[in-house]
Simulated assay, not measured.
Amino acid sequence: MYFDLQLTVYICVQCVKCTLLPPTVLIIQFLSIQNWIEDLLWKQLDLDYPGMPEAMVHRGFYSAYHNTTLRDGVVSGIQRTRKAYGDIPIMITGHSMGGAMASFCALDLVVNYGLDGVNLMTFGQPRIGNAAFASYFKTYLPQAIRVTHAHDIVPHLPPYFSFFPQKTYHHFPREVWTHNIGLGTLVYPVEKICDDSGEDPTCCRSVSGSSVRDHIYYLGVSMHAEDWSSCRIVMDYSKLQYQMDLNGNLVLSKQPGLSNARGFSAQ
């Protein structure tokens, strides 16, 4: 499998309506810059998900989270933050392949670490497992949200074949499909809450998945970040084992040299 991948993970604590009060939510965000869409066209389900009979997943996405330093860094960040601020809710989010990895992260935190208060919202993520996996996922993360946009190509990959529903890739619910309706100057955005099947034929599956532009823009925001976030992880900097950018964000990368190349400094 081919990945031309640069992946960055931010672990941030945020106070929603204040600047001086304690934070109210822990946000874990997976960002990626990649050239992998063509590889998803015919990638087969090739890995049994541990502890879930008949559940199969995409080996590349699974391994990118579970078999790198990302997992240890994320768990360590959560433990330190909750030690400092109590059991504040956790929001896992990501775009594109980052959304796929965010999904595996959220499931891991619930199933293998027994954490509560874990929420997931992804944007333009690909399919990551089969129907059995999607069913397990729904059980453990019933409030998960996958946001899709218009004709975004990535949520259509790897392909879903309705005539082989148990043997093909299958999205987990619940999808929220954002798109525009109207003509000419009378165009306005719509957010459609889809059914709980994960493959609602009236949502993004009702249109062709052919647009890269729709993949880049979500809710009017470009997902191509021009600079780094400014939120900080709560931890003892003297014991930091990972890279940190100039704004104090913890950066976990599959490519260790990426941090220094972008002006990051090891603490």
Rank of each mutant, 00 (worst) to 15 (best):
N260P: 04
F133R: 09
V190S: 08
V190P: 05
Y160C: 04
L186R: 13
A106M: 03
I33W: 09
D72Y: 10
L115M: 13
R205M: 04
T8C: 03
V9F: 11
Y188A: 08
Q243A: 15
V176G: 01
N247Y: 07
Y140R: 14
K83V: 10
R80L: 12
L5M: 13
I88S: 00
G248M: 04
P89I: 05
P155C: 07
V25H: 05
T93G: 08
H95S: 06
L47W: 06
T69N: 09
H224R: 15
G51L: 11
S162R: 14
H149L: 04
V118G: 04
H151C: 12
W228P: 03
M91Y: 14
V25R: 01
I193V: 11
C18P: 07
M56N: 01
H171D: 09
T178F: 12
A132G: 05
L109K: 00
V16E: 13
M244P: 02
Y242S: 12
S32L: 11
C18Y: 06
T81D: 01
Q243W: 13
G198R: 00
R71I: 01
H179D: 03
L141A: 03
V154L: 09
M91N: 08
S211G: 11
T122E: 03
A134W: 02
Y237Q: 06
V234F: 07
T93F: 01
S265G: 13
R80Q: 15
I78R: 04
G248W: 03
Y242C: 10
S265V: 10
G98I: 11
L109R: 01
I27Y: 01
N35V: 14
N249T: 07
A261S: 15
S259N: 14
G94M: 01
V9A: 00
E175V: 13
D39L: 03
C194G: 07
T148C: 09
K17L: 11
F172I: 01
A55T: 06
V16L: 15
A84Y: 13
W42M: 04
N249L: 02
L252Q: 00
V75C: 11
A134Q: 10
L115K: 08
A132T: 12
V74R: 00
Q29K: 14
L183P: 01
N260A: 15
P173K: 04
S229L: 06
V187P: 08
R82T: 12
T81L: 02
Q29S: 14
E38D: 13
T148V: 13
P89W: 04
C231V: 10
L157Q: 06
C194E: 07
C204K: 02
H215Q: 11
T68F: 08
L186I: 14
P155M: 08
Q6C: 07
S103W: 06
D108E: 12
V207D: 07
A102Y: 05
I33Y: 06
I145G: 02
T8F: 05
A144S: 13
G124K: 02
Y2T: 15
L47P: 05
D87N: 14
F3H: 12
A144R: 02
Q243H: 10
F3K: 13
I233A: 10
M101L: 14
K192G: 05
G99M: 03
S230Y: 09
Q267T: 14
R205P: 00
Q255N: 14
G263E: 05
